[in-house]
Design a protein around this nucleic acid. Structure first.
Lengths: 314, 314
DNA sequence: CAACGTTCTGCTCATTTGAGCATTTAGTCA
DNA sequence: TGACTAAATGCTCAAATGAGCAGAACGTTG
């Protein structure tokens, strides 16, 4: 190749970057080739990286965005954050990431409180056998049993427990009851209360959230009517966490409804040491923001876009 | 951040790549963090780069593709090749690249033979003042003067000459003549012959090519009718170089027409030391292949996609 | 089960690289 | 013009890295 003379610094920088990264020549060689000292070559390379002329990308389904994770941790005082790059099958990727996170969690949880839903299912599916050694998996909110998808919630718990070499403890109660008295009665029932008490002592929680619209699984299961949800939205609901509808400030939007909801309280999530919140997808940006900004989790597992929305200046 | 345990090698590789490239930790630190030796970290990083998990990209309008350039040089025995990344404004990028190449050409050409056209215009536009010192720019094929775009060809030559601190020598002849006798007469005219003789001794040539369809500037200028071109295509024409229509084997498709074309012969390009062929865009893939595979140039300046087509196994 | 070849591992050593610093150069304002 | 500040340059030195190699672990085949 004939020798070249580069003129402005920018072009020189590009040439250097090409020779270094594409042709992997040494900085010294490049210096000799382009007639500059190796120190200048080094500095221009640093510049090239800083100025984004050289872009280094890790292309892998299980890659993460450590920079964004750090930002999230710092901004919201989180214990940890996991952010996966944007992709088509977001839910699956994030599920995988949550499974990975759970697997690498130290100390290995003895008791894990979980919610249920499609996201949680996904996490369960991505866990490998032996991710824990004798973990007790406890449901932390009432499950769906009104329609054909009945078994889902218990299946999720069972799968996570099975793969972790332990047992699932189900919460034998509907998610939302029609009457306050029934809710009080069932919550104080020995069986239900026992499960909730054990749940309260779990070493970690893993849960997702639902969107406040008629597509919600709580609507699909018949706990709420589309009108109910519309009314909740009118009151400021952005979505539900462990069955409880909250507004942008992280507070229950409808105290009456909240009292009829069976399961762990939001405060218990807030004060937990390890509360892992898994959330993926555009639709859940609002509820994700409500949860993360109001301290309802200590660890968040999500996708790059959701993370970006969380980090936006408000 | 809590400690993590990575399981399969692939995941470990990804984690290492992230820590190294995103968090720029040292290989030693990463080793300590993930519980492997620093040599393993190093090896996995190499692997990650080889296997494409780590992708390093140089994002810049004037970046090039040195790997592809090398392939082109080797495959076609070229003296040099310049390949720019795919982009929207291909013609402009390639023009810039050709201008850069010309500028860095050593020894600086004393005499430069050029064709004309939109591509050449672009190259001229991207040259900086002082790219050469007293270069003589000579037209190597007859110019268009049948329509309003008359001045174009001479303007290109003048611009290149002006910026190179020299003078342009125009070829005072139409590109294609109607009758063979006229063509012979004009070619032997002292003025025209003189220019062509000087052109034959140029230290470098710079030219582009046209597509064989009715959008060609030769059609637009009235030298050929759409029907003429259709007939040429039927005979196997893929495009024109310095006004001469060739087939995929680099031979003139229509000897009669070729004799009526005024300008440097293809053999003179073939035997030139420095014949820089500039070509950009999807439409020109065929003509580009014809020129490059048949030794009609010693240097090619093009875009990534065209280069890829050239490198396809045939 | 033993002999073999292959892959993997951790090492030494030479090379490559980046941080820090003194010096030069360029730019600015009195 | 000259004095001052900021930027750029080229150096020393220590840290980081990759190449090459010997031994270990592994699987394979007779």
């Amino acid at each position: 190749m004939p020798s070249r003379v580069a003129h402005d610094t920018e072009l020189l920088t590009v040439r250097i970057a090409e020779l270094y990264y594409d042709e992997n020549k040494t900085q010294d060689e490049i210096g000799a080739l382009l007639g500059v000292t190796r120190w200048k070559v080094g500095r221009l390379l640093t510049q090239a990286r800083e100025r984004g002329i050289v872009r280094i990308e890790i292309v892998h389904p299980r890659a993460r965005r450590l920079g964004i994770e750090r930002d999230l941790r710092e901004r919201f005082g989180l214990k940890d954050a996991v952010v996966v790059p944007a992709a088509d099958d977001l839910r699956s990727r994030v599920g995988q990431a949550a499974a990975d996170y759970l697997t690498s969690l130290r100390p290995v949880p003895r008791t894990l409180g979980i919610s249920w839903g499609r996201t949680l299912d996904d996490v369960a599916g991505h866990l490998s056998k032996g991710w824990a050694n004798g973990v007790t998996v406890i449901q932390i909110n009432g499950s769906v049993s009104l329609n054909r998808r009945a078994g889902t919630a218990s299946t999720t718990a069972a799968e996570i427990a099975l793969k972790g070499g332990g047992q699932a403890v189900l919460l034998p109660s509907p998610a939302i009851l029609e009457r306050l008295e029934t809710a009080r009665a069932i919550s104080s029932d020995r069986t239900v209360a026992g499960v909730l008490n054990r749940a309260a002592t779990a070493s970690a929680y893993l849960y997702s959230a639902g969107v406040a619209d008629s597509s919600s699984i709580l609507v699909g299961s018949g706990y709420l009517s589309p009108d109910d949800v519309a009314e909740l939205v009118r009151k400021g609901a952005v979505g539900d966490v462990v069955g409880r509808y909250i507004d942008a400030n992280g507070n229950p939007v409808d105290p009456g409804l909240d009292e009829r909801t069976v399961g762990l309280g939001l405060d218990q999530l807030r004060s937990a040491t390890t509360a892992i919140f898994v959330v993926a997808g555009d639709a859940k940006h609002d509820i994700a923001r409500a949860v993360v900004t109001n301290g309802l989790c200590s660890v968040v597992v999500t996708d790059e876009e959701t993370a970006a929305v969380l980090l936006e200046e408000q």
